[in-house]
Amino acid sequence: MREPGVALAGALARDEGGLAIVTCPDLDLRDWLVREVESLAPTDADPFRTSSVADALREPNRMALLVPNDEAEVVRDLDACRDQALNPPRTQPIVLFLLRQGDGHRVLATEAPSAWSWASGSDVDPEKLAELDIDAERAAFEQDTGSAPEAWLVPWRAGRLPRTQENYTQAFWAMTLERS
């Protein structure tokens, strides 16, 4: 099984300067997912939010959190401008947030083969998060780490754990399973 946190962390990290797509069930969860990705980004990624492809391309050394006002236009622009990410080469990804049933996914499927191909394999749908057996996953987390998610997050939030890829992933997973 693909753990959602691992899949998301992988999508953000695997292709330097690539395009990752986070699919959101609704606008409220989109806001939440933007914050989550922001908090997961390594410090040197220096993430910033924008709704414009041109702005995202202007900052090749920062993680662009692309939160569109008009999904269809943004996807079309990404399709037409993809190779500008090579000139100069990006060192940080563009993370595009799209609604699951929205215009962005429709345009990806119908009009934007280049953007679709760019993100292929790096488009994460948190649908699986909603399908989690939370109790079983919390038990698995405790078995893996020796701590409950809330307990693991205490030293993480205090900055006492190293900011490694593995720990970022663990942090995302712990936050997903955390009981408020």
């Binding site: 693909r2 691992v6 899949a7 962390a9 996914h105 990806l108 679709w116 292929s120």
Partner: peptide, 27 residues
């Protein structure tokens, strides 16, 4: 991410295949 390993194993490959398959499904 999972093991800090330099080489993927068969499970890693299976999950990479699933990621790609999902992309094709959405298209």
């Amino acid at each position: 991410i999972r093991r800090g390993d330099d080489w993927p194993d068969e499970r890693d490959l299976a999950d990479a295949v699933s990621d790609q398959r999902d992309s094709f499904r959405r298209a």
